[in-house]
């Protein structure tokens, strides 16, 4: 609707706006939310609150970057929540068993890359739909984690392990990671051959093949990248609090997928940006916080959240329709 409101003469701006339409809708929603809720309760705008909205949910945004790439390539991953739980547990276990901190940070990420590269290989070469492979993977990771840890909490984590709690230049490191990874990932998607091949494969696999792209290798690469982002998200998730729960965070995969698709990644593949998914992850965090600030009865919280997702989606659909 933003795009349509502009006069057709300003074609450059118009093209820019229609290219980033959904991102702008989400961004405006965030701004509107801050203005409205801030006017009702000024504490919403306090730096501590803004800080906790961003820092507390940065790991979701980072996981959504990888998820967006997977969806752009025409696939999906419903096991990401389980994977993040497993990564957090591995990282915590390594950290308390006396391994050097950099080992505790990197080994779980490598593990995540390996697992997802495996998933990618299955998806690419056997043509099993990714939702099936990752549904299976969800079961395997979840069951395996419970068998291995019995849900024993990991505590007494060394302070230098807590990377998410560090604050370089006064801003939580999780936020630095979120911003930096979003920028790197969007430049990567836009300006590298591999990045562009992800769009090509998601848009039309056979056409991509005809254009000289190896779709199988692209899919494996995308999943491995997704593993990298999930791994980083998992480390931030693990280091946010003093204890690690050793369980699969409930419904995390839904939150991550929702952030990606609301951020403008078409579930059909081929389009979308990671800026949108990061903005959408922030929007969700804002909504969650705003509903508490607005005194929405706790019983109705989820209904309002559902309605807001629906409203965002419908607004996007209306915008696309007018843009046509």
């Amino acid at each position: 609707m933003t795009a349509a409101a502009l006069s057709p003469g300003r074609s450059n701006l118009h093209r820019f706006l229609s290219g980033y339409g959904q991102e702008i809708v989400v961004l405006l929603s965030i701004v509107a939310l801050f203005v409205v809720v801030g006017a009702i309760n000024h504490r919403f705008l306090s730096d501590t609150n803004i800080n906790s909205i961003f820092a507390g949910n940065a790991y979701i945004a980072i996981a959504a970057i990888g998820m967006s790439m997977v969806i752009i390539a025409g696939h999906i991953d419903v096991s990401v929540g389980a994977l993040i739980g497993v990564i957090a547990t591995i990282a915590g276990t390594l950290a308390v068993s006396g391994y050097p901190i950099w080992v505790a940070w990197t080994v779980p990420i490598l593990f995540a890359i390996a697992v997802n590269a495996g998933v990618g290989t299955l998806v690419a070469y056997t043509r099993i739909p990714s939702i099936v492979v990752t549904l299976g993977m969800l079961s395997i990771l979840k069951g395996g984690l419970i068998s291995a840890t019995a849900g024993e909490w990991i505590s007494n984590l060394p302070p230098e392990f807590m990377i998410a709690q560090m604050r370089p230049f006064g801003i939580p490191s999780a936020v630095w990671f979120m911003v930096a990874l979003t920028i790197i990932a969007s430049l990567f998607l836009r300006y590298t051959d591999f990045g562009r091949s992800i769009y090509a494969v998601g848009g039309n696999m056979e056409a991509a093949r005809a254009a000289g792209i190896n779709p199988e290798r692209t899919v494996i690469g995308v999943f491995a990248l997704h593993g990298l982002f999930a791994g980083i998200a998992g480390i931030l998730f693990a280091t946010q609090l003093q204890v690690i729960q050793s369980t699969v965070p409930p419904n995390l995969e839904l939150t991550v997928i929702t952030a990606s698709v609301i951020g403008g990644v078409s579930i059909l593949g081929g389009t979308g940006t990671v800026i949108g998914s990061t903005l959408a992850a922030i929007l969700f965090a804002c909504i969650g916080s705003a509903l508490i600030f607005l005194n929405v009865s706790a019983y109705w919280l989820r209904a309002v959240l559902g309605l807001m997702i629906l409203a965002t989606v419908l607004a996007d659909m209306a915008r696309r329709r007018r843009a046509k």
């Binding site: 309760n41 504490r43 919403f44 306090s46 501590t48 609150n49 906790s52 507390g56 949910n57 998730f237 946010q240 609090l241 204890v243 690690i244 729960q245 965070p249 409930p250 969650g288 916080s289 508490i292 600030f293 005194n295 706790a298 919280l301």
Partner: peptide, 23 residues
């Protein structure tokens, strides 16, 4: 106020932080 946080560490932390910020 009462807030729900499942049996989830991070969500509990976020909800408690929001309460502190709000009031």
């Amino acid at each position: 106020e009462t807030v729900e946080a499942q049996e989830d560490n991070n969500l509990s932390f976020n909800q408690a932080t929001t309460l502190i910020n709000k009031y």
